[in-house]
Nucleic acid binder design. Sequence first.
DNA 1: ATTATTTCGGACAAAATTATCATAAATAAG
DNA 2: CTTATTTATGATAATTTTGTCCGAAATAAT
Lengths: 144, 144
Amino acid sequence: MFSKACEYGIKASTYIALKSLEEKRVSLKEISSEIDSPMAFTAKILHQLAKNDILVSAKGPSGGFQIQKDRIESIKLADIVYAIDGDSVYKGCALGFNECNANKPCPLHDKFVVIRDELKKMLQNTSLFELTEGLEVGLTFLKR
Amino acid sequence: MFSKACEYGIKASTYIALKSLEEKRVSLKEISSEIDSPMAFTAKILHQLAKNDILVSAKGPSGGFQIQKDRIESIKLADIVYAIDGDSVYKGCALGFNECNANKPCPLHDKFVVIRDELKKMLQNTSLFELTEGLEVGLTFLKR
DNA sequence: ATTATTTCGGACAAAATTATCATAAATAAG
DNA sequence: CTTATTTATGATAATTTTGTCCGAAATAAT
């Protein structure tokens, strides 16, 4: 469904959001340990998320990553997915056409668009804050 | 969403179904040309679908692939996807956990399950016959 | 029977994705 | 100012997926 990069991106962002809620900046080391992801690979993804203005990075001792507290509720999963995987999730054709639309649809188009749009809606409506809620009370997990 | 292999598998099966409706067997060459897919790679996928009892293959001159006419309506997309991609589409976690369930869910689990189940239902309810219908009347396409 | 055609099946190759490593750049702290 | 720490960045490697090649096996037609 999502690329590994995107999976790590969402997990990392969620963890960073959780810590940012209590004004804490977190290091790459802590992040990749807490979400159980390869450190160097995660670094690249975080860098990309920073470039896309989703999180803020700081170099040097006591540096790390953080999300502006007042944006944790307005940053949606769709923003993260878009920053990493682009719009493939939203525009992609089930059968792999570069273009596929009502005008010249693949045989699965109509049925697939319904699912794809639901996914899109879900990602656009789900904020980082929502994802932190379950984590905070130990109801959901970022690693097994 | 689906692997390339799966995309080709669905397209190929749909084309074979279309031809099988008029009692015609089709060659690999014709198939890969009609769905615009790499021939040798498509061969492997077709072979796998044959092994999984979704289509029938025949060697030798005038050989090729075919689907039993009376099964075109009962073979669902879910069968094809399962034969090629396994159950990852149905059991996969949005954030990549090997296991992810209500008991120990990832932060996105509840919202994702809704989408995943819709996809599952759609695939289980869509037959090859349905996909051929639009093709026959030139409303849908297998290549652009 | 021989031959031409077509799928079968394994080895191999290319491309894309995922992951690692090493070094540079920034910066906080002493 | 120096040092230790941490992110930034590009090169490289491993893995997975996608795709190719070629000979084997089957079989229809001559």
